[in-house]
Amino acid sequence: MKLKNIVELLNAKVYCGEDQGDMELISACASDMMSDVLAFVKDQALLISGLCNPQVVRTADMMDIKCIVLVRGKVPTQDMIMIAKQKGIAIISSDYRMYSACGVLYKNGLIAGDQETI
């Protein structure tokens, strides 16, 4: 699924990665605990989180995650945007709650990617 389709499905605002709309994302994970992302995530390209601090971007970078979806209308800080730009990570924000955001994306074909993942 292309990033621009995800933005549309989640009615999201793009804070970083405006030029990455055609980026293909094939799987996703969701968590507010970064330690869990580091422990269980395998090769997911997209992280859905309600946590909104620079360590979400650092964690994504360590895991080679290409896009962060902030839920519940969270607004990324300038620090987050700065690190994300350096790393080529897109940040978008949606008013959906996490469960709903996951449901919408899953229903539209964005899989978890691994049975063991969170």
Binding site: D32, M33, M34, S35, D36, L38, A39, S49, L51, N53, Q55, V56, T59
Partner: peptide, 17 residues
């Protein structure tokens, strides 16, 4: 610390793993 997304008790186990 948990509010910051850490403190799940996975740090050292992850490092070992």
């Amino acid at each position: 610390i948990r509010d910051l997304g850490f403190g799940a008790g996975m740090g050292l186990p992850n490092m070992k793993k």
